Measured scan of single mutants.
Amino acid sequence: MSIQHFRVALIPFFAAFCLPVFAHPETLVKVKDAEDQLGARVGYIELDLNSGKILESFRPEERFPMMSTFKVLLCGAVLSRVDAGQEQLGRRIHYSQNDLVEYSPVTEKHLTDGMTVRELCSAAITMSDNTAANLLLTTIGGPKELTAFLHNMGDHVTRLDRWEPELNEAIPNDERDTTMPAAMATTLRKLLTGELLTLASRQQLIDWMEADKVAGPLLRSALPAGWFIADKSGAGERGSRGIIAALGPDGKPSRIVVIYTTGSQATMDERNRQIAEIGASLIKHW
């Protein structure tokens, strides 16, 4: 067993022997301040990774656009098919120029040779490549099948209805392509620590998230040296922004954090800054 596999296998073990965790309302004060600064709703939840206990939450059962955070769930569904012998990570998928959609920095470079399922998941999570996500959605049967996968996990809230990039439209009061912070946090925890996926697939999923290259201005910008984070960000229309993450000190994750916002007129930089400040408060009061 590799060191990384050992780390993920012992996530519940280490967490069980940690000192009790206590909620700190100071972080919620910052979440509410972010709402004021952005002029928009902000949803927040913080779960203990081992027990699933909610440590703090704000608007945990209000719907927010998922945006690209759905790509972690998508690759979880792909990995479940791999575990069941219905898919192979090494299978190569070929596609054409007509398949390319807006923001496809990886797939646009491989029109000639195609990409493997493993490479597509890596591109979808680490670079948020939209064509990679659409190609992977095709392998599982489309958005409705991802929703069905989530329902089978016990998540009857999260739903995907459309493809990239239309799913980022974020129309107010439109339930399409949305989740709730509580539902997303619980589902992410199941994917990373539950028995739904094999140990190898859980490790692969967290490795992809740990290698995320496009979430630097968010929670990662607030992390002290030595902290662990595996995350996936999302951005959408109407001032929408979000991030889902597993993080913790001492090089291992111990909490799940989900943050979503929508309806702001603020710039992307300002949305990023507010999420980073929430992260800084979380870490300060850990």
Rank of each mutant, 00 (worst) to 15 (best):
I259V: 11
M268G: 11
S233M: 00
R118L: 10
T178V: 05
C75K: 03
A133Y: 00
Y103T: 07
V106E: 15
R255A: 05
R92V: 10
K252I: 13
M209S: 00
C75Y: 03
T198A: 09
R118I: 13
S80N: 15
E87H: 05
A211M: 15
W286L: 04
G234E: 03
W286Q: 04
E195K: 09
R159A: 12
M180G: 11
L150I: 13
A132Q: 01
L47K: 05
Y260N: 03
L223C: 05
A200Y: 09
T116K: 15
N173G: 09
G194D: 08
T262V: 09
I171K: 14
T112K: 14
R202V: 13
T126S: 07
W227K: 00
T198P: 08
V117N: 04
L135V: 10
I206D: 04
P105N: 05
K190S: 15
E169V: 07
D99Q: 08
V42G: 00
R159Y: 07
D155H: 02
P253H: 08
F149H: 09
K213A: 05
M67Q: 14
D155M: 02
L223R: 06
W227R: 00
R189Q: 15
I229D: 00
N130F: 01
G43R: 00
T178H: 02
H110C: 06
N152Q: 14
G194K: 07
E35W: 01
T138R: 15
T158D: 01
L205G: 00
P249S: 14
D113F: 11
D83W: 02
R176Q: 10
G39T: 07
W286F: 08
E270D: 15
S281I: 13
A230S: 12
P105R: 07
G114A: 08
P181S: 04
V258H: 00
A246C: 09
T138L: 15
K213P: 04
I54E: 14
I171H: 15
R92Y: 12
V106D: 15
I244P: 00
T116F: 05
L191D: 03
M127Q: 12
Y260V: 11
D207Q: 06
R238G: 08
P65V: 05
P224Y: 04
D36G: 14
Q274P: 05
Q97D: 13
A77Q: 06
D113V: 09
L135N: 04
L49K: 04
I283F: 15
D48V: 05
L219Q: 03
L55I: 12
K213Q: 06
N173S: 11
L282D: 02
H94Q: 11
L146D: 00
L55Q: 12
G234Q: 00
T178G: 03
M127G: 13
L188M: 12
T261I: 13
E56I: 05
G226I: 02
G90A: 14
H285D: 10
S104R: 04
L100K: 05
E35L: 01
G141D: 12
S254G: 09
A124D: 02
S221M: 15
Q203T: 06
T187K: 03
K30M: 13
